[in-house]
Amino acid sequence: MRGMIEEITAALGAHGLILRGGFVFPDGEDAPCGASGAQARSVLLVGQAGAAPWPHFLRWRKKQPQAIANPLDTWSRQVIGGVAEAFGARAVSPSDRPYLLFQQWATRAEGLRPSPLGILMHPQYGLWHAYRGALLFEDELPVQAADPAIHLCDNCVDKPCLKSCSVVAYSAEGFAYQACLAHVRGADGEPCRSGGCLDRNACPQGTSYRYPPEVQAFHMASFMR
């Protein structure tokens, strides 16, 4: 099994993706089903650190119809789905309906906690990472939930991530979605549209993994739609 995990890591790495940890579902947990329809025993999270998948995605995108909806989700599904088929797993996505417990799975797999922006804070990548899918196996793999990771937000006194947005999109009350959306779409939202969320960019952690402006602009355009 350990060899299979290494092979999965290599298969994902060919597309700029990485394994983000995993765990075995405890007996009695209502786990989703695997490839055959039987209940899954293990899950491996798949995602990215920084913008490593971006050039792979762009090469794929050039060959697709321009009107394709949610191209990054579509690309992720194809890549992760191909890996799942090769290794006898079921591929699932954060956008699948009904929604699966991806945030909880990610917390268990890597021991992470949310930042004030809701994005899980990673001790190495900061806020510049993402989960693109998961592989569900009906066998018990040699993986286990991670111990709690260092939570960098605990020692961050200034909290610049809560002070950089002119409409205070993030606060103790949560995310002001409508205010953020109106601002990004409006005349004063150009810095956000072209360079990404000002609050997210203000975080001092993991800056070497920060998405380039064109990647942030792509995600912001998706948000505006």
Results as ranks from 00 to 15, higher is better:
3 G>W: 10
3 G>I: 07
4 M>N: 05
5 I>A: 11
6 E>C: 06
7 E>N: 12
8 I>G: 06
8 I>M: 13
10 A>E: 14
14 A>W: 06
14 A>D: 15
15 H>P: 07
15 H>V: 09
20 R>M: 15
21 G>I: 12
23 F>D: 09
23 F>L: 12
24 V>M: 06
24 V>R: 15
25 F>V: 06
26 P>S: 06
26 P>G: 04
30 D>H: 11
32 P>Y: 10
35 A>I: 13
38 A>H: 10
41 R>W: 04
43 V>M: 12
44 L>W: 13
50 G>D: 05
52 A>F: 04
53 P>R: 09
55 P>N: 04
59 R>H: 10
63 K>Y: 01
67 A>H: 12
67 A>E: 14
68 I>D: 06
68 I>N: 03
70 N>V: 08
72 L>D: 07
73 D>Q: 13
74 T>D: 14
75 W>N: 07
76 S>D: 12
78 Q>T: 14
80 I>W: 11
81 G>R: 12
82 G>T: 10
82 G>M: 12
86 A>M: 09
89 A>N: 10
91 A>D: 11
92 V>E: 10
93 S>G: 03
94 P>I: 05
98 P>A: 04
98 P>S: 06
100 L>Q: 13
101 L>W: 07
102 F>W: 06
102 F>C: 07
103 Q>W: 03
103 Q>R: 13
107 T>E: 14
110 E>A: 15
110 E>T: 05
110 E>M: 15
111 G>Y: 08
112 L>H: 06
114 P>A: 04
114 P>H: 03
115 S>Q: 02
117 L>G: 02
117 L>T: 15
121 M>R: 01
122 H>N: 11
123 P>Q: 00
124 Q>P: 00
126 G>P: 04
130 A>Y: 09
133 G>N: 12
134 A>E: 09
135 L>P: 11
136 L>D: 08
137 F>N: 09
138 E>I: 02
139 D>I: 10
145 A>L: 08
149 A>V: 03
150 I>N: 08
157 V>W: 12
158 D>E: 15
163 K>F: 01
165 C>N: 06
166 S>T: 15
167 V>C: 05
170 Y>L: 14
170 Y>E: 00
175 F>Y: 15
175 F>R: 00
175 F>C: 01
179 A>P: 05
179 A>M: 08
180 C>T: 06
187 A>R: 09
187 A>K: 13
188 D>S: 14
189 G>L: 05
190 E>R: 12
193 R>I: 04
193 R>W: 03
196 G>M: 01
196 G>S: 07
197 C>P: 01
197 C>H: 00
200 R>K: 15
201 N>V: 00
201 N>G: 13
202 A>T: 01
202 A>V: 03
203 C>S: 01
207 T>G: 03
207 T>W: 03
208 S>K: 02
210 R>D: 00
211 Y>R: 02
213 P>C: 03
214 E>I: 13
217 A>E: 12
218 F>V: 10
219 H>C: 09
221 A>N: 15
224 M>A: 14
224 M>Y: 09
